[in-house]
Amino acid sequence: MKCRDVREFILTDYLDERMSGDAQTALERHLAECGGCREFEAQARQVVMEPFRQADRLYPPDAVWEKIHARILEENQARAGSRLGAFWAGLSSRVPLPKPALAAAALVGVMAIALTFTLHRLPMQGPELARLDIEAEATYVAALLDGTSAASVSESGENGGFGTAIEEYFL
């Protein structure tokens, strides 16, 4: 093994204890014979290993979690808000919701249909009844003017006509 290769292994696999078997045996045999590489190894341990291994562990202050906590609560609120918005967006895309003017027009239409239907189902009254009364009156007056007994016939039925003494006296 050459010194250059040995030193490369020292800075990586050897110091990091990744060597084993024949490679490690060969490297250690070289170290036993080479003073320069032994010195290099000692120096490497002192400079690139010890300061880091002796370093104390650091702990984050409580304020770090408090800030994270506050931010994820904000995230949760934002998520909840966007879920509600998405629900409405999804609903309106599946079921087209009417605009106010259209909704009002549709409501008036429905009410008109309902009113007509209701009136049609009730006994005759109101304008229709009045129209029939006028027609009956007109027929009666016309009958009187014609001197026919249509009116009396229609009104008196089988008892109508000049069948009484009083009627005969006046007419």
Partner: peptide, 12 residues
């Protein structure tokens, strides 16, 4: 491996 090697060489 190469980053560790170069980093440690720099430290030395």
């Amino acid at each position: 491996r190469s980053r560790l090697k170069r980093g440690r060489e720099k430290l030395l």
